[in-house]
Amino acid sequence: MTLDHPVVSSMLPVVLLIAIGFAAGRLRLIRGEAVRDLSNLVFLVLVQALLFRTMATAHLERLDLRSVALYYIVAGAMFFALLFIQGLNSRSAVVALAAIFSNTLMIGVPLVQLAYGQAGLVHLFTLISMHALVLLTLATIVIELLVAREQAANGQQGHRPIAATVARAVKNAILHPVPLPIIAGFLYSLTGLGLHPVVERPLKLLGDAFGPVALVLVGVTLAQTAIGPHLRGATGISLLKCVVHPLLMALAGWALGFGGLALSVMVVAAALPVGANVFLFSQRYHKAEELVTASVAVSTAVAVVTVSITMALLARWNPLGG
């Protein structure tokens, strides 16, 4: 496999960014005390700009939702299955999110562009335009509900009625750094006004900084994390993300008669490694932080092999003209 291979050329920048962050952490160029501030910068500033701009400039009425609907059904089913298997708690929700949330932007875009061209990107951008809206909003609501239940069980909320607990959790999920800019951007897109370049350009610059800064932050955190104790768990999450997720997507697609380029792009998207947004979620809720950090790194390494195999199998069993 050469450096020109689509998988390698897409994964290598991600690996290098994590490695740069790891070196910066080990050399104490970025100290442990600064990690929380950097996490807040990424989660409360850069992600806000990325999500709002994406939704505000998306032409939702032009999107072919048929090709992505099944993707979210499969991802949602897998999320809840893992949540119930592991136990209904906020930590399990973060781990389940790691098993279904792909790095569609940093790795997916260049990979699909190199492998399938502009036609493939159309399908991927349809998926990306709703990726955060569907999966992150779903995860936020579930995690907030579970956190509320855990706080009630620990006596931190007194004897609040269940309806009030649910209402408070849903309110927290909506007034949250992830769903709020998505909803705001979607509502703004309905006006049809578009974004003036004076506003759009700084939002784009901030949004473009999200991926690199988040991955460097993963590396910094990795430098302060003992991977050994989490290697088994991270490997398990990586196999769920890079093997089980695309397998379920492929089986569901073929069972329902999907085929050709649309199915190939969806399966490849499912095969991508864990996205940095899950790392930020774990930081935000202080749940499984070290495990998720290790999973981002391990899944990226695993995906070099598994995505290559996935694409080779797709080329054989799912001709793009199908």
Results as ranks from 00 to 15, higher is better:
L114T: 15
L114G: 14
Y116D: 11
Y116G: 03
G117W: 10
Q118K: 10
H123S: 12
L124Q: 13
F125S: 10
T126D: 11
L127I: 10
L127S: 10
I128S: 06
M130N: 03
H131P: 13
A132D: 15
L135Y: 07
L135F: 06
L136V: 15
L136G: 14
L136N: 15
T137M: 12
T137Y: 04
A139W: 03
T140I: 04
I141L: 14
V142C: 11
V142W: 03
E144M: 04
L145I: 13
L146E: 12
A148G: 13
R149I: 01
R149N: 10
A152C: 04
N154V: 00
G155S: 09
Q156V: 10
G158A: 05
H159C: 06
A164Q: 13
V166G: 06
A167V: 07
K171C: 15
N172C: 00
I174F: 14
L175Y: 07
H176A: 05
P177C: 06
P177N: 07
L180F: 12
L180V: 05
I182K: 03
I182G: 07
I183G: 12
A184K: 00
A184N: 00
G185K: 05
G185M: 12
F186Y: 12
F186S: 06
L187C: 14
Y188A: 01
T191H: 00
G194M: 02
L195P: 11
H196N: 02
V199Q: 00
E200D: 15
E200V: 03
P202M: 00
P202N: 07
L203T: 09
G207T: 05
A209F: 01
F210N: 03
G211V: 05
V213L: 15
L215Y: 05
V216S: 07
V216N: 06
L217P: 05
L217M: 07
V218T: 12
G219I: 02
T221K: 10
A223Y: 04
A223V: 06
I227G: 01
G228K: 05
L231K: 00
A234G: 01
S238D: 08
S238A: 15
L239K: 04
V243T: 08
V244P: 12
V244N: 09
H245I: 03
H245A: 13
P246I: 08
P246L: 11
A250N: 10
A250T: 08
G253C: 02
